[in-house]
Design a protein around this nucleic acid. Sequence first.
DNA 1: AACTCGGGGTC
DNA 2: GACCCAGAGTT
Length: 305
Amino acid sequence: MLQQTQVSRVAERFEVFVGQFPSASAMAAAGEEAVVAAWEGLGYYRRARLLYGAAVQICELHGGKVPRSTEALLALPGVGRYTAGSVASIAFDRRTPIVDGNVIRVVARLEAIDAAIDDPALVTRCWETAGALVRAAKSPGVLNESLMELGATVCKPGPPSCDRCPVRTQCAASRTGVASQIPRPKRRPVRQIVHLHTILFRRGDRVLLRQRPHRGIWAGLWELPSVESADSLESAAIETALGFKVGGLRPLETFKRLLTHREVRFHVFEASTRVRRGHWCDQAEAAKLAMAKPMRSLVDRRAWS
DNA sequence: AACTCGGGGTC
DNA sequence: GACCCAGAGTT
């Protein structure tokens, strides 16, 4: 849950989530869709599916207990070098290094390496340094957490608080006054604009929902039937792409949401025509299905009245 | 090696 | 608006 997600965001959700899935076997029994639904709003939803896969694997291969070795952890779905090292060192006291965004920033400054934060050579160097530090530490878990905490609270992105830094005298970037310029920012791709034409079908207290394709943005999450395109579409084109007759679309609203790689422009319509087939949900049923944040807000705003 | 995958905090 | 977040998996 902490992957690419700020601790404060996780802290709001962690207790409820763990209460719902208190063990690997409980998560495996609950099923993937329940895990994704519990993940709603956290983003990067593939993590939820991978976590479910890890729970299944832990049950089938490890008797329901989280494996203690870094290698076995690394073999679990969704567990990479960072996550394996974190669990191994912090939970199981293994002498394994970790490198996250915080550690990269700390090491880049300590050693005054002028490179972008995602530069592969810098990242490799960080694993080496983190390895040397954890080998020399009294407690691997405490060392690893300390490195991250230092990066999160003192050696922050932007101007660091070197005056409060416990290792300032050992920091090459601080000595030469370049700490605030290291590491360099990651180059970001231009955000592509995507138009999402979203159609509200209502029938009494029910609304028509469907599941998004299993790849791409919001993969496998539920939505009001939608047509995605590079440009905004006329009603006729929306009907064609939708695959069934709509017979009149009334525009309701438009809004925009920014994701890391996309700018999603919503064009919301209401259809007057009745559609018989499909997944018609009342409010309680819809509440149990995983939706992306903007889609959930839209449904809550428009579907029940 | 580059790309894809959310949503929000912070400046 | 830029930049980042206790990254991993795919192409």
